[in-house]
Each structure stands twice: as C-alpha cells, then as structure tokens.
C-alpha cells in the first residue's frame, strides 16, 4: 500500500514539470499499466500522483517537416482510428489493432506504452523499426533521444524521474517502403505477446535498403536485430537469404522461459515468423 500525499492535475506543462522537479511524483496518463501494477504491488506509487491528462501540449499530432509528431497522450485507439495517423504510419495502426481490448485502447496512451518499457509493449517494435525519437521535457529543458537505445531493461528507460515524455517523432516512411508487424500471442485478441516482430525496408532496384528488424518479448527490452539487418541490407530476397536471415534472427535474440513461452519456442517462432514475413515481402 502506498499513501498518496498529493494528487495534482495541472493544466500547463510548466506546472507539471515543476511538480516533477523533485523526482517525487508518479505520472498518471491512461493508467492501464499503472493501476494494475500498483494494485498488484509491483509498482510503489510516489507521494505525488501527477495526472498529465489535462496538458494540451501532450495531445494531438502534427506533421513537422519530414516527421510526424505524436503527442504522448495520443491513445492507442487514435493511432488506428485517426485517418492521418493510420495513413502515414500504417505499421503503428496495425500494432494498435492488436493491442489489448477497446476499453484499454481508449485509455492507454502511446507515451505510457513507451515509458512502461515492457519487453512485450505492442507499439515499441513498430517504433523501433520506424526510427522514432522520443522528446523529453523537464524544468531545465528538452532533449530528443532515438528510441533505439532508450530502453535499458524491463520497465526501465533513459527517462529521468524529473522528465516527462511529451511526444514521439516518427520520420515519414519513404516511397516504396514495405513494413510488416507480427504479434504472436496464443489467441487472436486480449493477449500479451509471446513474441512480436517488425520489419521495414525500402525496395530499390538494387535490393533492400535501410532495413530495420526489431523484436519484442525476446529479451529484457524490445530490441533491434543488427545482425539480421546487416545480412539483408542491400540484398535481394532469395530463398537462401531468407533462410539465413531467419537463422540469424533466431541466434541474435536473448529470450527467456516464462509462463507464456519457453526460450526455445520463442526462438522457433522468431525463425518461422521472420521467414514468413520475408517470403511475403519477396512476393510483394
């Protein structure tokens, strides 16, 4: 049990950042992870509960140059239902479609999903392959960090306690970009991934360019697959290359056994699902 001493729901970003300055606050947005974790005794709430839902700067989205700026409070359902977002970033819309249930999607935010930093977080694998950046604000300033490297462990990120994640920037995919997202749970809905997998590349006459491969739930954080990416970069997809890529991916992940799957099965799934994705791209 935690005694919350103060509950704050500021209407301006400055007030929110001031409240965070002492590092003594727990941030509440959709609450879909936080409430479950605090009820389950897995998260200790700090003395100040800071509701950020009234901060206008964190809502909405816009196109800024070559990137889409997604406010941290954008809900998972907005990712799939907003026509502009879904058209610009179909991979994220697809991940949102596989995310929990409608009730949860109406409340859960993309900022919360990123800060919760679950190895199985549904939007994280797409954000990794899309080269997203996160924007962090604190009373002393703002910084932008690439999402690749932002996750440091299960539930841990580079965000400091006095920082607030305000937005996510995603570069607009170039022409002739193909992308795929596969979430593997044991049932079609309402499931936590046993494995997820994202792929993105540009199809050029010379072969694949700017290849991105990322995996969820196969290590302490959602992770890129540098070995698999390097193998595929600049190449044309042949059956031999696809087989080798699947083998490489299987070898470079670091899964564990848990109640959802054994490490062995996760490796097999990554192998088989990446092979399926690449076969599908090759037929494209």
């Amino acid at each position: 049990m935690t005694a919350i001493e103060r509950y704050l729901a500021p209407a301006s970003l400055d007030d929110a950042l001031a409240a965070l300055a002492g590092g003594n606050a727990t941030i509440l947005a959709g609450g879909t992870d936080l409430m479950v974790q605090s009820h389950g005794g897995k998260t200790r709430l700090r003395p100040v509960l800071l509701n950020i839902r009234r901060l206008p700067e964190l809502a909405g989205h816009s196109i800024e140059g070559e990137s889409v700026r997604i406010g941290a409070l954008t809900t998972i359902n907005q990712l799939r239902e907003d026509a502009t977002l879904a058209k610009a970033l179909p991979l994220l819309a697809e991940a949102a479609d596989r995310f929990a249930s409608d009730q949860v999607r109406n409340m859960a935010t993309i900022g919360g999903n990123v800060c919760n930093a679950s190895p199985a977080g549904d939007t994280l694998v797409p954000l990794l392959v899309l080269d997203a950046e996160v924007e962090l604000a604190s009373a002393s300033g703002r910084r932008r960090l690439p999402i690749n490297g932002f996750f440091t462990g299960p539930g841990r990120t580079l965000r400091q306690p006095e920082e607030l994640l305000t937005a996510i920037y995603v570069p607009m995919p170039r022409l002739r970009t193909v992308s795929r997202f596969v979430k593997f749970g044991t049932r079609p809905a309402l499931d936590i991934s046993a494995v997820s997998l994202g792929f993105k590349a540009e199809l050029t006459p010379a072969g694949l360019a700017n290849v991105r491969v990322a995996f969820g739930a196969v290590g302490p954080t959602p992770m890129r697959g540098p070995g698999t990416e390097a193998l595929l970069e600049g190449q044309r997809l042949t059956p031999a290359l696809i087989a080798k890529a699947a083998e490489t991916a299987m070898a470079e992940i670091t899964p564990i056994d848990d109640v959802r799957a054994t490490a062995w099965y996760r490796r097999e799934l990554v192998h088989n699902l990446l092979r399926k994705v690449l076969n599908d791209v090759a037929d494209h």
Partner: peptide, 15 residues
Amino acid sequence: KNAGFTDYKLITAPE
C-alpha cells in the same frame, strides 16, 4: 504462476 486472467487463458469471443 498464473492466478489471473492475463495468463490463465479463457476462450474469448473471437475464438
């Protein structure tokens, strides 16, 4: 190890 509906999987509507 799975004393809840997150990991004790009942059949859901789409199945």
